[in-house]
Nucleic acid binder design. Structure first.
Lengths: 222, 222
DNA sequence: TGCGCGTTCGTACAATGTACGATTTCACTG
DNA sequence: CAGTGAAATCGTACATTGTACGAACGCGCA
């Protein structure tokens, strides 16, 4: 009785910025950004809403910090490695993390204050390219290109209709409705002959574009 | 006196879904998504909040419709034109629209119910590629690649630090702070030797990547 | 025992989306 | 012209959110 009335040390291990951030990640991964409120966060932490404000100045700052945590999870390229392999590894890692934390993509826009992990990530990428012999100009081009592709691919993946649906039916039904209208014949043709084939996975498209981009960059590097 | 007391026909031209959507666009372009509330929208229209709900079922539906309006503004490719020129024109148009309505980028994720203009857009792109001789598989690859690049580039543009800043100082100052820490040498080197050079405009990076992608696709098409 | 500071929380308020139903406006009929 | 019914507009009210403000708590140290 007395123990449950005073859940101090053992049951509530003290708050910290790390605990706040990781709880926020859990909530966002589970229910999206709309599920992440100061109150839901406090509940997840076993405290009261106003307590989290001791570690985070505002919800905006919380979101900025969350984006930085996502970047922290992305593998860094090794500046001394072979640049193509390093870029490929980084790109795959970034895509995977952004898929897992797809709520983060919408945050990239509107947040213009990158955190330390984000800056470190960018720095390592630029360094890797420069050391591989890219000129400053080509490095800038390559960087914009690769990152655009990675972010854009993640964005498309996040907004795909067939995301968590298990059966083909779930996906095919709206397509059938489209077919009935006859307004989008090219989409219907692509869907029936390609997208809806068994075993199709949009994520597999990633490799093709990445190869094409890295090939083109290598050609221009020389 | 009587005229101002009853501002009926002339001063308030009647509501409509189109007027609601275009007013919402104006507000979002002016103050971002956070400035767009049902109340601000009603004020812009000269009505009361609950009146807009006659034309829009919910704010979510409003946002879905807004995304579709943005797609309406993007130039469609001509399925009978030369595919490279058509794709290039469309890509530039899309980038420009997404820059103008940069709040729309964050909406692409999380909205999984495309409107008619969006569907039409996708359909025309697929049609153009198929007619140019791309196989179904290569069409899917090309489509994912080009769109990823366009969306991702727009996303990066929107989150750029130097956006509305006029002077170099505004941009250079945080860079100087970075330089002082010594933690991000590659970024500092790129900034001083390239990004901060007079006349630099990130939008110019778009062409390089687009060319590289279209080149690579043409090579694989044959 | 009391002090002081770092941490937690209770209360309160303004802004927002929107349910529900009342009210107004308007084309048309008798 | 008065009346009627549907289409369009709005008033009120409530739940949810971020968060300002200051009080309460806990704990090491005098």
């Amino acid at each position: 009785m007395t123990a449950s009335a005073r859940p101090s040390a053992s049951t509530r291990p003290r708050l910290s910025k790390e605990r706040v951030l990781s709880a926020a990640m859990v909530i966002a991964d589970r229910g999206g950004l709309s599920g992440l409120t100061i109150r839901s966060l406090a509940k997840e932490l076993g405290t009261k809403p106003m307590s989290v404000y001791y570690y985070v100045a505002s919800k905006d700052e919380l979101l900025d910090a969350l984006v930085d945590v996502v970047f922290e999870e992305i593998e860094l390229p090794d500046p001394d490695g072979e640049w193509r392999e390093e870029m490929r590894r980084r790109a795959h890692s970034a895509r995977a993390r952004l898929k897992q934390h797809c709520w983060a993509i919408g945050l990239l826009e509107s947040r213009a204050s990158p955190g330390p992990a984000t800056l470190r990530h960018h720095d390592r990428v630029l360094d890797c390219l420069r050391r591989a012999g890219f000129s400053a100009k080509l490095t800038a081009h390559a960087y914009a290109l690769i990152d655009s592709y990675v972010y854009g691919f993640a964005l498309q993946e996040a907004s795909l209709p067939f995301e968590g649906s298990d059966t083909v039916e779930e996906v095919a039904e709206p397509i059938m409705a489209l077919m009935a209208t006859g307004e989008y014949p090219a989409m219907v043709e692509m869907a029936t002959t390609y997208y809806l084939q068994p075993g199709y996975d949009f994520a597999d498209e990633f490799e093709f574009g990445l190869d094409l981009i890295l090939d083109g960059l290598e050609r221009r590097r020389r």
